[in-house]
Design a binder for these strands. Structure first.
Lengths: 219, 219
DNA sequence: TCACTTTTGGACTGAGAAGTCCAATAAGCC
DNA sequence: GGCTTATTGGACTTCTCAGTCCAAAAGTGA
């Protein structure tokens, strides 16, 4: 909706934080930061100030606070892609899985990412469709990428999920989040040393192989 | 703080929903429901109405909205106990674990419980100590109860976590939540058929036994 | 019965915030 | 340059809501 012709941004020249961005982009960026750090309750004045833009421009471009919020979420959703390099078929499943875990621990599990998710969860009470949109753009993408990869490995005979690769993918993701997400969402510290990350990543991969390796569990 | 002498409630006679409860109890109950279903943004007027009490009484009893909210969380926290019957030592670990999973799926994973957690997560942005208090009273209790049980089983020789029962407990809990919590918190449907609950519970228990059974993984 | 405390309802204050209006200014385009 | 459209700032309206005030009514205890 309303992706107007204003958003040109022809300049792909590397540009220092918030310089010649189009007005819409600048607003969306500032809105993301303000909503993330202060929740849906930030005032439009605060967002306007953060975007170094007048309040009227906010309304010219997005119509209302709710619309701005949704546009911001949609914008960020478009930027999220499954950070899963599924092309590396030659790697052993165990290594691939450990890598997925490592990626989770060092990206999705970051205070910044967590505070964004926390904000979305809070807002999904008020705007249920936001929760759904976020799920589709984030967690679901990762789940599906992983599911596909597992499916492929199963066809090759290197994994055996009994024909339910998504079931396997869900449990692997559950295993790596292992309550860390819950704690992070509640604002508790979730820092992990590189050693700890390595230990957990390897462990999760090993567990998964035991459960879904070629001669895994009977199901 | 401020557990005043007003909260008597000598009547343990079974009483239909919201009858002769002490005023404080009635307010706390209504506040819990309103905060849960509408978030911290509910108006004090709405809470007063829901508690069939005048707004002034709210302020007489709790001083401010923030204090009422915190009192409500503390009240609910006191009511939460680890729903883990750890006394059943004679049962096989596999059965015990499956039962923990079943309990999770049929209690913690309920739309009602999830919406309360969702609200807490949202509020923890504004009041970080609330997130912590909730964690201590809820998830941490369960984690610790499970950790203790695992520790005991390890001493008996029926489990082997390599001396880190909490690590094992965390992963088991991660395994059973398996992304269901994430979806639920975002407001998506998480209904499961009894068959599905049974399948998942058994599966998680089996995985755990493979990982931490007497001749489990090398660590 | 009498004094004391609490509740009640309803009006009221003050602050903060969404959204609007408008005249002046700047930017983009032919 | 000149036309058009967008941005600016800042005042303004309207509304919601936390918290207060107060006089009347209801409990409560001895």
């Amino acid at each position: 909706m309303s992706r107007s012709a204003t958003a040109v941004n022809l300049n792909n020249i590397p540009v220092s934080h918030s310089a010649i961005l189009s007005i819409r982009a600048r607003i969306l960026e500032a809105a993301a930061e303000m909503f993330r750090s202060q929740g849906y309750d930030v005032s439009m004045d605060a967002i306007a100030t953060a975007a170094t833009v007048s309040k009227q421009t906010l309304y010219n471009q997005f119509g209302s606070k709710e619309d701005l919020f949704k546009a911001m979420v949609a914008d960020r959703a478009a930027a999220m892609r499954a950070p899963l390099n599924v092309s590396a078929l030659e790697r052993h499943p165990r290594d691939m899985l450990a890598d997925v875990a490592r990626q989770y621990y060092s990206h999705a599990c970051t205070p910044y990412e967590l505070s964004y998710t926390r904000m979305i969860i809070g807002a999904s009470q008020q705007f249920p469709e936001i929760g759904e949109a976020y799920y589709e753009a984030g967690p679901k993408q990762i789940l599906e990428a992983l599911t596909q990869w597992i499916g492929r490995e199963e066809r090759i005979g290197r994994l055996d999920t009994g024909g339910d690769p998504q079931f396997a993918a869900e449990h692997f993701l559950g295993l790596i989040t292992a309550r860390i997400e819950t704690r992070g969402l509640l604002g508790l510290d979730v820092e992990m040393s590189p050693t700890e990350i390595e230990r957990r990543s390897r462990f999760c991969a090993e567990i998964f192989m035991r459960a879904f390796g070629p001669e895994g569990l009977p199901r």
